[in-house]
Design a protein around this nucleic acid. Sequence first.
DNA 1: TCCGTTGTCGCGACGCGTTCGCAATAGCCC
DNA 2: GGGCTATTGCGAACGCGTCGCGACAACGGA
Lengths: 143, 143
Amino acid sequence: MTASYVTPPLGAPTVHAAINALRAAGLRVSAARRALLEALYAAPRPLTAEELAAGGDLASTYRNLDALEGLGLVRHLHRGHGPGLYSPAGARDHEYAVCEGCGAIHTFEASQLDGARAAIADLCGYAVTFGHFPLVGRCARCN
Amino acid sequence: MTASYVTPPLGAPTVHAAINALRAAGLRVSAARRALLEALYAAPRPLTAEELAAGGDLASTYRNLDALEGLGLVRHLHRGHGPGLYSPAGARDHEYAVCEGCGAIHTFEASQLDGARAAIADLCGYAVTFGHFPLVGRCARCN
DNA sequence: TCCGTTGTCGCGACGCGTTCGCAATAGCCC
DNA sequence: GGGCTATTGCGAACGCGTCGCGACAACGGA
């Protein structure tokens, strides 16, 4: 065990690192968790718990997503209606905007929205993240 | 009937105006709708359908909220978990920020967030509203 | 004012997303 | 390998919101 994440500050870059973090936290590395992490890291976009379960047990998937989120390895975001979406918490954070018109999910590097975040902090003192709750509006194409 | 809202562009300033708008739209003014509007306009903050039903029928309350929303008299916003929150659509639009730490809901005049909205439009072309989906983060006190 | 039409109410049942309880299984440490 | 215990997988329950339907009542017209 060379460079394990004792208490990972924010995410892990790979499935392997995530598994190490899991071990380091005293959690067991089960087949279900391995599969979950692989599905999460392989996905090009945030997925629902149903999609991540992929035939496996849904309740366990929710429990594991919750556990992983507690370690900072996974993040979830809410759309208006419908199930929540889960994504791995990589080294660089992503933030999201969903279009009310077409349902498309737009992904940004967190740094891209620093300007908007700063404007909001100036206005009301809120430190906001558009990752847990996405920006919602109409995209350029749907306007 | 002097100054009724034939097709109200955005909200009504009082319960009375809202009732007129209801009539003008060809909808009936029932006791349930009267009570619903009074509860909405009397509330100092957005309320849940459950709170608005206040012992009355919940399904009807949802239907009425939906109808009123269709007329532009009511708006709703989502918190992360828990039920949606409904508020009357007054003359001036409000937008909201909810604190992940303490659950407080912060209310803004829409114009107060124009700066943030402009920053976001510049970055990604999205025309966002923080009214249907609030800003989410940690308020100054919970940081 | 009464009447008929039809929008609305209130009730129960349902649907979806998520969580809980519990016995059986399988990781991890010795 | 054996034992302790976290984790699994199943079923049932939950919360929020919606649907279907018979009974009622709001509104327009006579």
